[in-house]
Nucleic acid binder design. Structure first.
Lengths: 243, 243
DNA sequence: CGCGTTGTTGAACGACGTCAAACGTTGTGG
DNA sequence: CCACAACGTTTGACGTCGTTCAACAACGCG
């Protein structure tokens, strides 16, 4: 009686994997816990690399800064996700990792991890699978960014968020976005107005519903409707449920 | 008097790093060489994961397929780059890796690599840095995709290609694209017509020049002009050199 | 030589961005 | 408790960048 939606190509219980990983880390190496508040950054671009951070609670975004001031949200991170992997190559973090809410991260020294891996090879497996999964996830982001129209990208964003919660064993019919329309738009490569309009259209088509209090809480009657909307956009753009 | 452009946050000689890595692999574990021809795939999505592939020569693209038939070029790979890292997480490759020209890859078994790493820890460093660099590269792709107008994206693509060649010690003033306009467009999230027009405009502004023979060979008078064009687009869109 | 593939260019359309106005929410200080 | 400001969101009108559709040109190949 697992509560978890069974997504293809994923272990049946992601909850289990995350719990196991956290336990494994805790057992095999020193861990530094750190509480962060909304807006705090776990690390910043250019800072000397030393540690990886595993999200224990809260919601985080990864922001990539270009030299000329353009900035881009390149990833969202939930419990069990790792932060700081981009720093390994150059010994300096390449992004900012920013908390979108109060949360806790576990800092582990990278060198300590490598040393511990000699005695506990499973650590290596975990690290590699994490990085590999991250690569695949970004490939999927690029696919969405490049092939989906704005409305479908927003729908895809909502489904990604609910999937992430579902995999962590939380209720999936109701989500509270920790991001402003501007942040969502940045992440999805569009303006905040487009995000707002897309959400309004999704609500009009009853794919989502706004709760009475606040437009940041979103009720999702059935996830399948979201998925259908995304796919519908690729076949016959805008033919789905809309006014 | 080094021929290599000195990009920030990168070792001075990438040529050296690549050569060292190839040598290290060759010395410490069994390698299976494999010749591929244009259009051949090194591996395909869904195929059981077992090996990583290091590009020894040629040009490769990574293609991500969605269930509903959308497809997206998510990366370009040159000598020294690794293919197959996306397969580690699920034990199945998540993309297609396709040769864009005749080339050679070195196949190494992932399990053999992990075992060899016990005696040669440098192998681990190489693997981790490679994956980390790959993550950063994709963050940069997303930044370009989301924040740059079409013309600048094409300019960025050309600069990425020339940088890759320059880092490998090849001439940088002249490049031969191994991709059709459609492939470039797919990679950059736009149509082939937009790519063609962007190239024409860049040529009109003398940022690039077409060689007399074929529109696939592109001459680049000075890379700085490309860079300036990209940055110009972010500050005052379309204010650069154009008709 | 004829034909398929690839690339270029033009014209019309449409999706999305820009600009602007109005409203709701939250927090702060009088 | 209210007034006010700062911020976030929604919605409309309008402009534009990029797509779509189409015709044509340049190769490469049988």
């Amino acid at each position: 009686m697992t509560e978890v939606t069974n997504t293809p190509n994923r272990p049946v219980s992601v909850v289990g994997r995350i719990a196991d990983t956290l336990q494994l880390l805790q057992d095999s190496m020193p861990i530094q816990r750190r509480i962060v508040r909304a807006g705090d950054s776990v690390y910043q671009v250019g800072q000397a690399f030393g540690s990886l951070y595993i999200v224990n609670s809260g919601y985080f975004k990864m922001v990539n800064l270009s030299g000329e001031g353009r900035e881009q949200v390149v990833g969202l991170y939930f419990k069990g996700d790792w932060l700081g992997l981009d720093g390994i190559a150059t010994s300096h973090y390449a992004c900012d990792a920013v908390a979108m809410d109060t949360g806790e991260v576990w800092a582990i020294r990278y060198d300590a991890l490598i040393q511990a891996a000699v005695r506990t090879p499973a650590l290596l497996t975990v690290l590699h699978e994490t990085m590999s999964r991250e690569l695949t996830r970004e490939h999927d982001s690029m696919l969405s960014l490049c092939t989906l129209p704005a409305d479908a990208r927003v729908a895809g964003f909502l489904r990604y968020w609910t999937d992430a919660l579902a995999q962590r064993g939380q209720r999936t019919d109701q989500i509270t976005l920790r991001m402003t329309r501007a942040e969502i738009g940045n992440y999805l490569g569009m303006t905040l107005e487009s995000v707002s309009r897309a959400l309004s259209r999704l609500a009009r088509g009853d794919v989502i519903r706004f709760t009475e209090k606040g437009r940041r809480d979103i009720h999702i009657p059935q996830v399948e409707a979201l998925t259908a909307f995304i796919q519908g956009a690729t076949v016959a753009p805008m033919a789905g449920a809309l006014h």
